[in-house]
Design a protein around this nucleic acid. Structure first.
Lengths: 226, 226
DNA sequence: TCAAAAGTGTTAAGTTTACACCCATGA
DNA sequence: TCATGGGTGTAAACTTAACACTTTTGA
């Protein structure tokens, strides 16, 4: 099916841009690349790409993410469409931004290198191309709103994690310190955050219990609040 | 400036669709139209339109809204981009949805008529075109999250309103009953919701005090919570 | 005079915050 | 043995929720 009525209207390039969040050493990070083509080649930018004709916009974002990280089935949410006439100085491009949350240790470093992509601390971002800084800012706002109400933070951690790691993650995202006892009290109420009998000895002599997020249990009866 | 690099990539029709919320007789309403062109002419749909080449996507949404209502400077927020390949059976169209909040009594009824547009109760929506129901659903979710934290509900009321009206509005949006005394206690704490010395005699013999939202005062020192 | 909506405070329950010490272990 | 991060409970402050009667006035 196709419509002659639609044909009188203009068409646009449509791109996706990915705000890829990671967490390492107590810091939130974003994966940035040096733009590989003109205009503005070499400038710091988000990883992006054009949407293909036979491809959902969501799928385009997932494809671009996989291209850069080697990962599939990553947690992604749309941030929104950015559609100012002059946002891209190359030509008119409407871009749909997505943020992704992933375990930084699972990304394919080789692919990062091929794309001149590097993890940058969120607190010391360089100047970014076009409106990419605004995209990051809006993604971060969404992440902050979401992370206290939904169990999405786990996406940024390995499958097994310590409570100290989890707390540091939350502190990094919301940008303030959390009381350790109050934090653990709240975690203890969420039975779908399960203590395993594994111990992580890497960060202390005593060792810290490793926990796991049980998504099935969460779906059943979970109320998340941190 | 224009780029030959971009030219190898496909282009798309980009549309906007507006979820226009109003409030009347204690009920939340949405302005729907009977689609004026093929395919699916006559089906219930959101008011939409194609983006022009020289126009920001946000501006296109505002233009479409003005076309249908005669109103300018209406409160609008982007809901998000809808980009499935087959979402529009006419041809591939990527649509960016926006919701608008307005005082239902200020819309130009003549323009509504010209566009075959009618206010429908949110609780009894007809079947809608394509993915428009999903757009309404997402807009409603955003409105619900937003209305308790930000003073946006006033956009749906006339400049002067009674506390009963305000409470009914909140009840309609969040979909549950609110205790009158607790509600008024919270309103009283927000000094930027100002009692005027006007009285509304239309809904009771005794008459109800009319209030006004003072945005300047809110910007200065306002903390909003309802 | 009565029906109908407007207006008004107090108490109990629940939630959130503040806070400090002992434990286990490897070096 | 000691330095380091892991682990644990209680009480006060604050917030939220529940609840019912009096007022005004036009018909």
């Amino acid at each position: 099916m196709s419509s002659t009525f639609y044909q009188q209207y203009p068409k646009f390039h449509v791109a996706v841009d990915c705000i890829i969040f990671g967490f390492k050493n107590g810091l939130l990070k974003v994966l940035l690349q040096q733009r590989p083509f003109e205009p503005h080649a070499g400038e710091w930018s988000l990883m992006g790409g054009f949407v293909n004709s036979d491809e959902d916009v969501d799928d385009a974002a997932a494809r671009v993410l996989t291209e850069l990280t080697g990962l599939k089935n990553v947690y992604m949410k749309q941030v929104g469409a950015f559609g100012s006439v002059n946002r891209d100085s190359g030509d008119r491009v409407i871009s749909v931004a997505y943020f992704a949350l992933l375990d930084i240790d699972r990304v394919d470093k080789e692919r990062n290198r091929e794309h001149s992509a590097y993890w940058e601390d969120l607190s010391t971002l360089p100047k970014l191309l076009f409106d990419h800084k605004e995209m990051v800012q809006r993604a971060l706002t969404m992440l902050r709103e979401r992370v206290s109400k939904r169990p999405v933070g786990f996406q940024l951690l390995p499958p097994l994690f310590t409570l100290t790691q989890l707390q540091m993650l939350y502190e990094a995202i919301i940008g303030e310190n959390i009381d350790k006892r109050n934090f653990r009290k709240r975690v203890a109420e969420m039975t779908f955050i399960e203590k395993t009998d594994e111990i992580d000895k890497r960060t202390s002599k005593r060792g810290a219990a490793l926990y796991r997020f049980n998504n099935t249990a969460y779906q059943r009866d979970g109320h998340f609040k941190l």
